[in-house]
Design a protein around this nucleic acid. Structure first.
Length: 301
DNA sequence: TTCCAGGGGTAGA
DNA sequence: TCTACCCATGGA
């Protein structure tokens, strides 16, 4: 068991339930118990299944327990413990400073002034950037049920010990099996291409984690990935901590039209819908997502 | 069978 | 930059 300190405004439940990732394989979110289980890769290729929770409530340490696999009996050794700590920190965005965003929310008035109290602003991530990229690709041009199926089957077909496959493991099964067995359809070629590029080192998503340049340059690199257009790139940028772009998809269009253009007879063009959040600058995406979160309150995202 | 989903890619203005 | 148009494929 290990405890990881969290920032005073860190809310485990709000973070885990921040978007759809918590219901995608190989994660297991128990909303009632407030526990998130995930298989994590350790150094030397082993896997451990951990349970995460925040029994002390907001701002309290995150408690991580190994429930199966390596470390479940004797506890996690130092290198393993560091790997688990790094993965948990990445997933829960423990390093993210939300003070500026929350200050903007307080100034903005209702309903945004509820965001700080709700612990809103941390978007759940995967243990690795590659896993996030694969899952984002699985959200493109398909229904959410399709996304869940594609991800689950990919874990089954390419993963080991129940964990999400590494880029090398996805590359190893190749586009044909991604298509026919994991049923990724035409996305299979894109996923295989990304996996090969990451596995070979041609693309290094880890470099994007600490990117300090303009979002535009980072977006350009992400858009160079096969299958990554404006929507997918904006989604990826958000998970990398860049919120100045909004990924326009059917969810965005449906929500903004209903919430902000209820009387419009025609569907407003994207730029008019995007203009709703323009004033939020570098926080546009979080402002939109909170607006949506308020609307979905109690129904889940 | 038809329709569409948390779109991508391209050409042309 | 914006728009029009075509493309893909599994699931409801």
């Amino acid at each position: 068991m290990m405890r990881i300190d969290s920032p005073p405004d860190f809310d485990f439940t709000a973070t885990v339930a921040s978007h759809g990732w918590c219901v995608l394989a190989p994660l297991a979110w128990d909303a009632e118990a407030g526990t998130l289980e995930a298989p994590l890769r350790l150094p030397r290729g082993r896997t451990t299944r951990v349970r995460m929770e925040q029994p002390g409530g907001r701002g309290a340490p995150v408690v991580v327990t190994a429930v199966a696999g390596a470390g479940s009996r004797a506890g996690l050794s130092d290198p393993d413990g560091r790997a688990v700590g790094a993965a948990v920190s990445r997933m829960l965005r423990l390093d993210q400073d939300l003070s500026t965003f929350h200050a903007r929310c307080r100034d903005a008035g209702s309903p945004f002034d509820r965001a700080p109290g709700a612990g809103f602003g941390r978007l759940l991530r995967s243990a690795t950037a590659f896993e996030d990229l694969a899952k984002i690709l699985a959200t493109t041009n398909t229904a959410w049920s399709g996304t869940k199926g594609m991800v689950a089957r990919l874990v089954d077909v390419a993963g080991r010990d129940g964990a999400f496959p590494t880029a090398a493991e996805v590359a190893a099964i190749g586009p044909e099996r991604i298509r026919s067995e994991a049923r990724w359809g035409y996305r299979a070629a894109s996923l295989a291409g990304i996996a090969e590029a990451v596995a070979s080192g041609d693309v290094d998503p880890a470099r994007w984690e600490t990117w300090e340049g303009p979002s535009g340059e980072l977006e350009e690199e992400i858009r160079a990935l096969p299958g990554f257009g404006p929507y997918a790139a904006a989604h990826a940028l958000a998970l990398l901590g860049r919120f100045d772009r909004i990924g326009v998809d059917t969810v965005f269009r449906e929500f903004v039209r209903r919430r902000h253009f209820p009387k419009a007879r025609k569907v407003p063009p994207d730029r008019r819908m995007l203009a709703v959040y323009e004033k939020w600058g570098e926080w546009r995406m979080l402002a939109y997502w909170f607006d949506l979160w308020v609307d979905y309150d109690g129904r889940g995202l």
